[in-house]
Amino acid sequence: MKFKNKIVHIILILFCLLFILPLLMIFSGSFENQSQLTENLEPVFKSVNSESKARWYVIPMYPTLKSYVEILFDSPEFFIMFWNSCKLVFPILLGQLIVNTPAAWGFARYDFKWKNTLFTLYIVLMLMPFQSTMVSNYIVLNYLKLLNTRSGIIFPAIFSTLSVFIMYRFFKGIPKTVIEAARMDGAGEFQIFVTIGIPMGAPGIASAMVLGFLEYWSMIEQPLAFLEDKTLWPLSLYTPDITPELTGVYLVSSVIILIPTLLIFLTGQKYLEKGIQASGLKE
Rank of each mutant, 00 (worst) to 15 (best):
P60M: 05
L65P: 07
T161R: 00
S236I: 12
A54R: 01
S75Y: 15
N116A: 11
A187Q: 07
T133D: 00
I10T: 14
A157K: 02
E221I: 13
R55I: 08
V164N: 03
N137L: 14
I242D: 04
E273Y: 06
F3G: 11
Y271S: 12
I20Y: 08
K270F: 05
K274Y: 08
Q269H: 13
L162D: 00
A208D: 02
G106D: 00
V8E: 06
T133H: 09
L246D: 07
M1D: 12
W114R: 02
S160M: 11
T120N: 15
P63Y: 03
V194I: 14
K145N: 13
I13S: 09
C16Q: 06
A54K: 00
V164R: 06
V69I: 15
V8L: 14
P244A: 15
Q96T: 05
W217M: 08
L23C: 14
M167H: 01
S28M: 01
V140L: 15
L88I: 15
I11H: 03
L118V: 07
G204S: 09
I220A: 10
S279H: 05
L281S: 12
I80A: 14
P203A: 07
P223C: 05
E221H: 12
S35F: 08
N116L: 03
P102T: 02
V69G: 09
G201T: 13
T195H: 08
I13K: 05
G248F: 01
L227F: 04
A108D: 01
S85L: 10
L118N: 11
V44G: 10
P60N: 07
L147Q: 02
T239I: 15
M200S: 03
L232N: 11
L263C: 12
S254P: 01
V69F: 14
L65F: 15
P91K: 10
L23N: 08
F90P: 02
V140D: 02
P223R: 07
T239K: 13
A104I: 09
K113Y: 14
I20K: 00
P175M: 05
R150F: 09
V178C: 11
I158R: 04
G204R: 04
Q96M: 07
Y68W: 13
R55K: 14
F19S: 11
L72F: 15
I154E: 01
T133M: 13
M128V: 00
Y271Q: 13
F27D: 01
L24P: 07
F193L: 12
R183N: 13
M128L: 14
K53C: 02
K270A: 10
V44C: 03
V58P: 03
S279T: 14
S151C: 05
